[in-house]
Amino acid sequence: MAGSTPASPTADGLALPAVMRARSNSPWAEAWRRFRRHKLAMAGAVVLALITILVLFGPLFWQVAINDIDFTARLKGPSWRHPFGTDDLGQDLFARMLYGGRISLAVGLAAMMIAVGVGTLVGAIAGISGGKVDAVLMWFTALFLSLPQLPLLLLIIYLFRDVLKGIAGPEVGMFVLIVAVIGGFRWMPVARLVRAQFFSLREKEFVEAARALGATTTRTVTRHILPNSLGPVIVAGTIDVAAAIIAESTLSFLGLGFPPDIPTWGRILFDAKDYMDIATHWALFPGGAIFVTVLAITYIGDGLRDALDPRQVL
């Protein structure tokens, strides 16, 4: 606000006495104003933006091939030639991490979109239908919540890895599979959240007013209920990005993620584990990258929760 307000508000008022201020604060603009007051969240946003820019445009400037093998420079610590050091084949870790970061972030975003999409759909249908449909869908959600996730994840990847690789190629096929399994196991909290929001919102007077105006159910949901239930969903979605990045690195660390030639952060960590004692830097850099990214996203989620909660006056 400080930047846009004139130095003297009274002078402004005198200069434009009768003119109504045309500028209006939409709820989203209000939320953005509140978000900016959350220092940690803003720091998180800046860090995440930097990481994103780095992995997107970094390879344009750091033109070292990710599979450039150099046995004379095995397991070297950080230096000017190799800022993050090298691995056991003398490959440049900085280049590999810039490339892998793209995949890690993309997996996080895509898995979050699947989780939020499926969750919102299931929650919205349950929340607007109520009755038997709601009971069945919530039973289904509880079922998914009670599944032992990791063993099932491994099983699904074992079963479908080769099929998908055959259809879409090793890189895209694996990406689709990993995003689908991570997203497919994370939609349940979103579904419950959306359903609860729908239950409370559909009793609100403005929703009743829409029905009194003759609005169809579709219109009531898309124009009135859904936009007002998005706040908590966005917060949950942010946390989901962080959780998906961790889940991907877990899978990669177990050797079930992307193939070795696609160096996601989790995969680099997996490869580093055997040399932890002699080449600590190898594990520290990908681990640190995951840590910083997830922390930044979590703080952004924190800030969003405060900013999107209309009851909070800041």
Partner: peptide, 8 residues
């Protein structure tokens, strides 16, 4: 409560 907060 009777006006949708997200609509103008």
């Amino acid at each position: 409560a009777s006006l949708n907060p997200r609509m103008t």
